[in-house]
């Protein structure tokens, strides 16, 4: 029987990265590069802030992580999969393991709040009643049990944000990406959202929160990744 090699196991654990970028460059269409030589790793279960001024490239970096855009150069590996050359047909199963809270929420206005939250399960072919039960539980968790059948357009910014979080986590993703989740809501609601994200992180979900709200960042101990002019640099503090 092979002996358990603690040294090698630890090395394996270190090499297992949820996100790995090596010298990644990115451009939109034929435009000039908006991200240059980006290299970083995220360990499983970690919580990171992605900070930087408006226009620095935070959203673009998240976009690469949720497979919304291909890099123009470099290597990206997500959840152990090299996605640089991943064929189109292999994208959906990987995307289902990544939850995204978009800056503009991207809720579908012709569907109820409940159906918006259930959408990721619906595209996976889950039966309708199962989806409804599950989406209903999540809406109660984010404190929107009363608004299930409302159209998203009738919700406040903070409520939409919580619907977006519920939708992002309904597939129990391993990686959760949030773009400016505290963008247009007051501080109290911002803290409440952060607690939801912390709760998820405690359940071993790797979380990345992009924000330019330095005040919010300062209240937490989590490590920061700073983007400036399309480059990822060390964070001075």
């Amino acid at each position: 029987m092979p002996r358990f090699d603690a040294e090698r196991a630890a090395e394996g654990w270190r090499r297992l990265r949820v996100v790995r970028f090596e010298n990644v460059g990115m451009r939109y269409g034929l435009g000039s590069e908006v991200l240059h030589d980006v290299s970083f790793h995220l360990a499983p279960g970690s919580f990171h802030f992605l900070v930087g001024n408006s226009g620095a490239g935070k959203s673009s970096l998240l976009r690469l992580m949720y497979l919304g855009h291909r890099p123009s150069r470099g290597l990206i590996s997500i959840l152990g999969q090299d996605v640089t050359a991943l064929p189109r047909s292999k994208l959906p199963p990987l995307r289902r393991r990544i939850g995204v809270v978009f800056q503009d929420f991207r809720l579908l206005d012709h569907l109820s709040v409940l159906d918006n939250v259930g959408l990721p399960l619906r595209v996976m072919g889950y039966p309708r009643d199962k989806i409804r039960t599950h989406a209903g539980e999540l809406l109660k968790w984010v404190g929107l049990g009363e608004r299930m059948h409302a159209p998203p357009s009738t919700l406040s910014g903070g409520e939409k944000q919580r619907v977006a979080i519920a939708r992002a986590v309904i597939t129990k993703p391993s990686l959760l990406l949030a773009d400016e989740p505290t963008g247009n809501i007051d501080d109290r609601m911002g803290m409440r959202l952060m607690r939801l994200l912390q709760e998820l992180n405690k359940m071993a979900v790797t979380v990345v929160v992009a924000t330019h709200n330095e005040g919010l960042v300062a209240r937490f101990e989590y490590p920061r990744l700073r983007v400036a002019d399309g480059r990822l640099g060390p964070d001075p503090g």
Partner: peptide, 9 residues
């Protein structure tokens, strides 16, 4: 695009 990003085939 949203459907694609949440994993729709």
């Amino acid at each position: 695009e949203l459907l694609h990003l949440i994993g729709a085939e």
